[in-house]
Design a protein around this nucleic acid. Structure first.
Lengths: 108, 108
DNA sequence: CCAATATTCAACCTATTGGTTGAATATGAC
DNA sequence: GTCATATTCAACCAATAGGTTGAATATTGG
């Protein structure tokens, strides 16, 4: 998968509050599908689908232990997303700073 | 709009490569809809729709100047997105560090 | 073996994306 | 005033998201 497609998947995975909550929960440690689903008012199946989207983005990893599927975090894709955003912020700020200087020049 | 809904919109807006390219282009300065559409092989209408999604996330601002609509960047939502990701990374790393320490303890 | 548990698969529904084409609207240029 | 330009609106289409319910599958516990 290209880096671009990976970013697409990661950002999309982060665009849903249920999935963000699942990730937060997993920061406290591994959990089974049933555990992850417990806090939500939606069906277990819906949570299972969310997990698939998180897996597609490689944000979570699955380890089978008998009939239980144990999910854990994988931070790497988040690093990519953070890197993209940080780079943009750098550019944007440079751009805005330049704009400000131009305005200041104009004032003189 | 709640902070959660804002994050949803921002992440979703960033989940498409055409929209990310539009944002990068805008970092070089304001541009009209037609200017933004030029590099892409899709229709002007499609770009117009992408811009609407970027506006919904408040990542771009629109200023009308006669028949031209001039788009510019608004960095604030990106700051929110970066903050969420950074917080998660902090937690995750703490969690992974704790796991490592636990494994080291176990070894003794 | 049998029943309960953990999870996915399959089918379905509605809303949204991401794209198209064609028409409408508003403004600028001559 | 008329024609060209800039942009959106409207209708449509295919694919996907996010949810449901019901059935299938695999594994554990008694």
């Amino acid at each position: 998968m290209t880096a671009i497609a990976a970013l697409n998947d990661t950002m999309l995975a982060l665009a849903d509050p249920t999935r963000r909550a699942i990730l937060s929960r997993l920061a406290a440690g591994e959990a089974r599908v049933t555990d992850l689903a417990a806090p939500f008012a939606i069906s277990l199946n819906a949570v299972s689908k969310h997990i698939r989207i998180l897996e597609r983005a490689a944000l979570v990893r699955r380890r089978r232990s008998g009939r239980e599927h144990v999910l854990s975090l994988n931070p790497a894709p988040l690093d990519q997303a953070a890197a993209w955003i940080e780079q943009q912020r750098t550019f944007w700020n440079a751009s805005l700073d330049a704009l400000e200087r131009a305005l200041a020049e104009h004032k003189d």
